Computed example of a mutant assay.
Amino acid sequence: MNYFAGLVREIAKSQNQAVKLALIYSEVTPEAILDKLKAGRLEPLAPAPTYDEAEILRSSRIVAVMGVEPIQRAIESGADIILAGRATDPAIFAALPMMRGVDPGLAWHAGKVAEYGASAAEPRGPVDLLRVELESTSFVVRALADNRRCTPASVSAVQLYEVGNPHLMIEPGWTIDLREITYQQVTDDLVRVTSGKGVPQPYTNKLEGVTAAGFQKMFTCAIRDSTILECLDSWLADLEESARDRCRTLVGADAFAQCKVTTRVYGRDGVLGERERRRPQTISEVALIIDVISPNADDAADVIEAMHYVYMHSKSPAWSINGTLAFPFAQRIFDLGEVYEFNVHHVVHVDSPDELFRLHVEDVTV
Rank of each mutant, 00 (worst) to 15 (best):
L190R: 13
P152I: 10
L106Q: 08
E135I: 02
P90R: 11
A114L: 10
Q185G: 05
A153R: 11
E133S: 15
P97V: 03
Y183Q: 02
A153I: 07
E162I: 07
D89A: 15
T137Y: 08
T175A: 15
G111Q: 06
I176H: 10
G111Y: 02
Q184E: 15
W108P: 05
D146N: 14
M169G: 13
W174N: 13
A107S: 09
L168G: 02
P166S: 09
G105W: 10
A121L: 11
P166E: 10
E115C: 02
L160T: 03
D89M: 11
F139P: 13
D177Y: 01
C150G: 06
C150Y: 00
F93V: 10
T187L: 00
E133I: 05
E180W: 04
N165M: 06
L178Q: 07
A107L: 08
P123N: 09
A94T: 06
M169D: 04
F139H: 14
L178R: 07
P97K: 05
P126R: 14
A94N: 07
S154Y: 00
E180S: 12
G164H: 11
V186S: 02
L168H: 13
G117A: 12
L190Y: 03
D103N: 13
A94K: 07
T175Y: 06
A95E: 03
A121K: 07
R149E: 12
M98T: 11
A95Y: 08
D89T: 07
V163Q: 14
L96A: 14
A118D: 06
E115A: 03
P97G: 10
V158C: 13
Y161W: 12
R179L: 12
T137S: 12
D189K: 11
C150R: 02
P166C: 08
I176L: 15
V191W: 01
G101L: 05
T187Q: 03
A145N: 07
G101I: 02
G125T: 02
D146S: 12
L168S: 06
A95L: 04
L130Q: 09
V113Q: 01
D89E: 14
G111I: 05
A114Q: 13
T182M: 12
M99F: 08
A95R: 05
E115Q: 11
